[in-house]
Design a protein around this nucleic acid. Structure first.
Length: 278
DNA sequence: ACCCGTGTTCGCTG
DNA sequence: TCAGCGAACACGGG
């Protein structure tokens, strides 16, 4: 599920559901998701007010009152995590943590594969967390600076698609958005990062932002944020909103001549139009 | 049964 | 010393 756009949806939902509410009880029984793996550790959230939920790349940073002793909760959804809001008698499958709120709703972290992570952060000093400290700029929050990209990639022989997945380069770009942005910028994903021209890097910077915003808009239209304020992800009945991702064998949506190809770079599925991306 | 997967980290290699 | 790569993590779905 989660690259930057999905996590941004989660941030919007959690802000509406939880900010200003008090946590009546927080529990994460027998799960690998909470680190350190102490079943009782989440009790530290009990009785606290949710002050804010911010997003940095794919990470969500919860700030929990009180003001003198703020507490942080770093949350990463991994590969299959979702935040869901349910009634107490209706828990989702694979719930790894649950936050019961003072309005009677229960917010769950559901994560079948348990690649997600929850970390309590004393004093909400997120900058001291290695996972946060190494993140690069967030495309939605900070924009993308092509010159900075060029500096970072100047000595990298990695394929540009592989480099884009490095969260210290840009925080939040995942496997889908990397393929999408390179298609939009007409760059061959296999091209060594150091050999991407300055002009192409400028196109890429704009393409990353455009792709993320396009995906977010599709999620809104697709009802991910719907009237009942429930999360409904696109794959649950929605159409593929992407230009090339998971479209191997289909006609290129731009040139309408070539066929979208799938290849594997550093173990990850990659999609491109072989006619336009060079 | 078998293969694949929207993420990250670890350990090995050259 | 370090960039780069494959494996591992763990489970459901096609």
């Amino acid at each position: 599920m989660p690259e930057l756009p999905e996590v941004e949806v989660a941030r919007i939902n959690l802000t509406r559901w939880a900010v200003g509410r008090t946590i009546a009880a927080a529990r994460a029984p027998r799960t690998r998701v909470l680190r350190p793996a102490s079943p009782q550790a989440l009790r530290a959230l009990d009785g606290r007010v949710v002050l804010s939920v911010e997003r940095l790349g794919k990470a969500l940073l919860w700030r929990l009152g009180d003001a003198e002793r703020p507490l942080g909760l770093y949350a990463h959804l991994g590969m299959t995590g979702k935040w869901l809001r349910r009634r107490p008698d209706d828990p989702p499958s694979h719930s790894r943590a649950r936050l019961t709120l003072d309005d009677g709703w229960v917010v769950h972290l559901s994560d079948p594969r348990m690649f997600g992570r929850l970390l309590l952060v004393p004093g909400a000093r997120f900058a001291e967390l290695a996972e946060v400290a190494r993140l690069g700029p967030d495309p939605l929050r900070d924009g993308v600076d092509p010159a900075r990209l060029g500096q970072r990639l100047a000595r990298s022989r990695r394929a540009i698609k592989v480099a884009l997945l490095d969260q210290s380069l840009l925080a939040g770009v995942g496997n889908i958005q990397a393929s999408e942005a390179l298609f939009r910028a007409r760059i061959d994903p296999r091209r060594p990062a150091s050999e991407v021209s300055a002009a192409a890097l400028r196109r890429l910077g704009a393409a990353v932002t455009a792709s993320i915003e396009h995906t977010l808009a599709a999620f809104r239209r697709g009802g991910v944020l719907d009237d009942r304020q429930e999360v409904r992800y696109l794959e649950e009945g929605g159409e593929n909103p992407f230009l090339v991702y998971d479209r191997a064998g289909q006609r290129c949506p731009r040139c309408r001549r070539a066929t979208i190809e799938r290849l594997v770079l550093s173990g990850r599925a990659t999609f491109l139009c072989p006619r336009e991306q060079r």
